[in-house]
Design a protein around this nucleic acid. Structure first.
Length: 139
DNA sequence: GCCAACGTTGGC
DNA sequence: GCCAACGTTGGC
């Protein structure tokens, strides 16, 4: 099982939208590097669900329920989509600013290469984010 | 709203 | 095939 991070602007499609829908097609990716990562995803892989632009935080965890297939939103067969479903909502969301400050998460691709909409996450990073998501807010 | 970091396009 | 110009993303 591998770990990834997928980005969405909450005004376009938020974590709440995914929870409401129960499952969605992760399509519309038009960046070659992000596409390569989509193709490497397998059923059961975990995805940090990140809100870009508004929020700038890990808003939830999703799992891959269908591996890469031709993106229905494109006539070009080179672009692919996967399907994802939500896992139970996090106790606490983890803002980007916090990921920057922790040693275990400061080197995440998300932090270093902000424009990539799909990126890999190491299992160490993934566990660190989960830990931060479960931690109570500092007083 | 600005700008840095990329990616893409097109002239040469 | 190089690179300048331009467009887009996303943090700040």
């Amino acid at each position: 099982m591998r770990c990834w991070l997928i980005k969405s602007e909450p005004s376009a499609y938020s974590w709440e939208d995914l929870v409401r829908d129960g499952r969605t097609s992760w399509d519309g990716v038009r960046n070659p590097q992000a596409r390569n990562y989509l193709q490497r995803m397998r059923r059961g892989d975990r995805c940090l669900y990140y809100h870009s632009n508004q929020g700038e935080e890990v808003a939830g965890i999703a799992r891959v329920v269908r591996r890469a297939y031709p993106d229905p939103s494109s006539a070009d067969p080179r672009w692919v989509a996967v399907d994802v479903a939500p896992l139970p909502t996090l106790t606490r969301r983890v803002p980007l600013s916090e990921l920057r400050t922790h040693v275990a998460t400061a080197a995440m691709v998300l932090v270093r290469q902000s424009r990539l909409s799909v990126c890999p996450v190491t299992t160490v990073e993934f566990r660190a984010v989960l830990k931060l998501a479960a931690a109570p807010v500092e007083p």
